[in-house]
Structure formats: C-alpha cells, structure tokens
C-alpha cells in the first residue's frame, strides 16, 4: 500500500483558511463517507451480528450465540469448500503468479522485438465477460469435443474428463485462471519498466545470464508488484463464484464447491442468512490473515536480499 506523507499543517498560518480548507475537504469526501457508512460499515457490522443469529429473511433474526460457527466446523460441505479453496490458493495462485511473471519477464526482454501484439493477446481474455468466458470454457474443456483434449490428442495424450472429473475439475479452473491473468501481466510489465536499465547493463558486463539476471535483479525488485498481484489473486479466489456457479454448480462430487459458492447457496438457496454471514466473517478474517502473512513473507525476503 502507498505510504502517505504526513502533511505539515503548521505551514498554514491563517487558521481560518485552514478551517475553510478542512471544511471543503470533508465536503468533497462526503460521498465516500456516506457510502462507507451505508454500504460498507453498516453491512459489515450487521453481518457480524447476523452471524450470531438464525435469520431466514422473513422472520426476524433470533440470537443463537456461536451456534453458526460451531455448526460450520461440523459441516462436511463447508470443510470441503475450504479445502477446495485452499487448493486454489496453494496451487492456483502460485502457478498463475509464476506464469504471469515468466511471461512478463520474457515480454519485457529488450532483445525481443515484435512482442507488442502478444501483450494484447495475453490481455484480451480479461475483457471477456465472465459469463461468456465460462460458456467458452465449458466447451474448451469438453472431454470428447473440447479444444484442450483435441490438442492433447494431437500429441497422443488422452485427455481427462476435466470439469466432469473430481480430480481434474480444479486444474481446469486453474487453467482458466491463468488464461485470464492479463491484468497481472500488465502490472508486472509496468513494474519491470521501473527497474533501472543500468542494473542489467552492469550485470551483463559481469557476464550474467538472462536467467541469473532474472533471479538476482528482476525478482527482488519486482517483489512489491508480486505482492500486490498475489493479494489481488487471493481475494479473487475467495470471491471465485461465477465460474463454478455457471460451469459446474459445485460438482462433480463437490470438487468445485468453492467458498463463495457455498456461501451463496446458504444465503440464497437455503435462506440461512445468519449461517452465510458467519461464513462471510470467517472469510474476512482468513483473507486478512493471509494478506498479512503475504506481506510479512515478501517483506522478510526483501530485507534478506538487499
């Protein structure tokens, strides 16, 4: 996050002017304050309250203490949803990050020309409306008539059932995640552009290889950008909803029952608003913890290297 510079108020001599400016400032920010109170703070707090209640929309909420939380940890579907989401975090996020960084580093290589159109190619999947992307991937991943298995067939591999297979459904989702990582690539490219050319020149004089340069110069300097993109991905995985909702409805055998999908089901299919709110709060706390860990982890690495 951007570190903000502390403003020196003392430089303002005229306190009336200062007060006028402060008043104006708050007036300008007022829409956000109202929006924050009404559409963010109030929902967060009431969500916390509901998470301790039985609430089915029609009847008034009934306070039940920590019952929802206790029930959640005995709920097999919830545990499965947590595992699936963890799978995406532990495998999907790193794989996607690796791919995005690798592509960006190669795209950024000064020695390669004519890569402009490729940036566009990697970026445009992010523009495809999620729903259309899902419809598309249902077809791309078809066991018999799908593009992926057709291509695998060309090299003599019999592709799996992908979305229809409990083992291969999540990898199919990861492939989709990678396909839509164009935003991250753009951000990595911008981050790479900020790395001073002179560092590479110096390294080249020392005879460092491209690989060596990447490991010892590019990656350490790219860390803040990696952090940003990973945080974005982690939040994205928690919110991963439209894809399983449209493509698999959580199946087969709950292999793609992800956190947000189960939350949605509890809220809008079973009308357990309190139960779903408890899920939302666990998500908030865990997401926050993961982001803190990411910060610590990447910061720690940084200080080690420099």
């Amino acid at each position: 996050m951007k570190k903000t510079v502390k403003t020196e108020f003392s430089e303002y001599k005229n306190s009336r002017m200062r007060r006028a400016e402060a008043k104006n400032g708050i007036l300008f920010v007022l829409p956000w304050i109202i929006g924050f109170l009404g559409f963010t703070l109030y929902p967060i707090l009431s969500s916390l309250y509901y998470s301790f209640c039985d609430y089915s929309v029609i009847k008034e909420p009934v306070f039940t203490g920590v019952k929802n939380y206790v029930t959640l940890f005995h709920d097999q579907t919830f545990i499965k949803a947590c595992k699936n989401t963890a799978y995406m975090m532990l495998i999907g996020v790193p794989v996607t990050t690796f791919f995005a960084v690798a592509v960006s580093v190669i795209l950024n290589s000064k020695k390669l020309r004519h890569t402009g159109w490729m940036r566009v190619v990697f970026f445009i999947p992010t523009l495809v409306p999620t729903v259309v992307a899902c419809l598309l991937w249902i077809w791309v991943m078809q066991p018999e008539t799908g593009v992926v298995n057709t291509l695998l067939g060309y090299i003599g591999v019999k592709g799996p059932g992908w979305l229809a297979s409990p083992t291969w459904a999540k990898p199919a989702f990861i492939m989709m995640m990678i396909w839509t990582c164009g935003n991250a690539i753009i951000i990595y490219l911008a981050g790479l552009q900020d790395i001073s050319e002179s560092l590479y020149e110096a390294a080249e004089i020392d005879g460092a290889s491209f690989f060596r340069e990447t490991i010892s110069i590019t990656l350490p300097l790219l860390k803040p950008t990696i952090l940003y993109n990973m945080v974005t991905l982690v939040i994205g995985v928690f919110q991963w909803f439209a894809e399983p909702y449209i493509m698999t409805q959580g199946g087969p055998n709950n292999a793609t029952m992800f956190y947000s999908l189960y939350l949605y089901q509890n809220a809008f299919t079973y009308f357990k608003m309190g139960y779903a709110s408890a899920q939302a709060w666990i998500m908030l706390v865990v997401a926050f913890a993961i982001i803190l860990i990411l910060f610590k982890f990447l910061k720690f690495g940084e200080s080690n290297n420099s």
Binding site: E21, A22, P43, F241
Partner: peptide, 29 residues
C-alpha cells in the same frame, strides 16, 4: 485539500479494497 485525519481516513479507503464483496452482500441484500 488538507484536513485533519485525512491520511488515516485514506488508509480506510485502501483497506476497503481488500474487503471481499461477499461480506457486505448479505446485509446489503
């Protein structure tokens, strides 16, 4: 514009960026 507490409030703005929509979705509904 400068006003007291501005940068602290701005940190809250940034914090809302990592708030998953699902947390506010149900109460908003």
């Amino acid at each position: 514009l400068r006003w007291p507490g501005r940068d602290k409030v701005f940190m809250i703005v940034l914090a809302t960026m990592i708030l998953p929509y699902q947390v506010t979705m149900i109460p908003l509904y």
